[in-house]
């Protein structure tokens, strides 16, 4: 090996691309996607829950309608993924049987998995566009994804 880089992906993308990453993350964590939700901002009722956001994220404007969200659920946990006023992607977790600390940890795990899915698909698409060969890929025991690419 000759150089090692650690990167934090910038999740600047359209809503459909992010929705696809959310679907992949939800499936890998055993969550179920609920039917599309459009919430009227004027009648928005704030549920008790913990809100976190996907770091370095921005959903391209005009790609998401106001109040549009994706809701995923597992047991008593319900997670709404949408956009705040600055355009960042937010993850709001509610669950009556969990403490705030647990809900925050779940929200951060889901946010990380969404970024993992996004980074994987972006890398694969861009590397294939450059005609590089994907030699090998596997999911490791720690649930990270390892990909070998030959130039």
């Amino acid at each position: 090996m000759s150089a090692v880089c650690v990167l934090t992906p910038l999740v600047i993308t359209s809503w459909p691309v992010l929705a696809s990453a959310i679907a992949g993350a939800a499936a890998s964590m055993g969550f179920t996607i609920q039917p599309a939700v459009v919430q009227d901002e004027n009648r928005k009722v704030r549920k008790k829950g913990v809100e976190t956001e996907i770091e370095n994220s921005e959903i391209i404007k005009d790609e998401i309608g106001p109040g549009q969200k994706i809701v995923i659920t597992k047991g008593d946990i319900s997670i709404e993924i949408g956009q705040d006023e600055r355009g960042a992607c937010t993850v709001c977790v509610t669950g009556s049987k969990h403490s705030d600390v647990e809900l925050r940890a779940i929200g951060e795990e889901v946010a990380g998995r969404v970024v993992q899915q996004f980074a994987y698909h972006k890398l694969m698409t861009e590397l294939k566009n450059r005609n590089y060969s994907i030699v090998d890929e596997e999911v490791l025991a720690d649930e990270s994804v390892r990909v070998r690419v030959r130039l």
Binding site: M1, S2, A3, V4, C5, V6, L7, T8, P9, E55, E109, A111, G112, R113, V114, V115, Q116, F118, A119, Y120, L123, Y132, V135, L140, D142, E143, S144, V145, R146, V147, R148, V149, R150, L151
Partner: peptide, 27 residues
């Protein structure tokens, strides 16, 4: 031939190792 070994962690962090080359090409 140069190779990338890319690890995408479940927290979204990406580690990339560039192998099989040196110097400027590697960067």
């Amino acid at each position: 031939r140069p190779e990338f070994e890319i690890n995408i962690g479940k927290n979204g962090k990406v580690t990339v190792e560039v192998k099989g080359t040196s110097g400027k090409r590697c960067l």
